[in-house]
């Protein structure tokens, strides 16, 4: 059975969210991912399968190993990727505004 999975259903599970955070910064093999969890290896494999079916994870063959990495295109459907970037700059500019207002008042 290979049902088309819904992205939101996929991220409803905390283990699957944790897997996504793991591969956000680097591609990992199923074994390396499973090493981060106490859950049985087949359970982790099942989670990886679900995340792959809904395209949140992408697999890339490298020699004998299969590496999984995050699919940013699909992640865009569930999260505003740009929001943290905007927040970073907004915080920075808020600081600029506060410092310059203070500077003006001191003059």
């Amino acid at each position: 059975m290979n049902l088309r999975r819904d992205v939101f259903q996929a991220i409803a599970d905390p283990t699957r969210r944790a897997i996504l955070t793991l591969v956000a910064t680097q591609a990992m093999t199923a074994g390396a991912i499973a090493a981060n969890f106490d859950t049985a290896r087949p359970t982790v494999s099942k989670h990886i399968q679900i995340l792959s079916e809904c395209e949140l994870l992408q697999a890339a063959q490298n020699g004998r190993e299969i590496y999984y990495h995050l699919n940013p295109e699909k992640m865009k459907e569930i999260a505003d990727f740009i929001a943290p970037f905007a927040k970073l700059w907004d915080d920075r500019f808020n600081t600029l505004e506060a410092i310059m207002n203070n500077y003006k008042n001191k003059k």
Binding site: A18, T21, A24, T25, F81, A83, P84, F85, K87
Partner: peptide, 14 residues
């Protein structure tokens, strides 16, 4: 570059 703060946020959550 756009995704760096997002990835950092995910890592922190993790």
């Amino acid at each position: 570059l756009l995704q760096m703060p997002f990835a950092a946020g995910l890592s922190m959550a993790h």
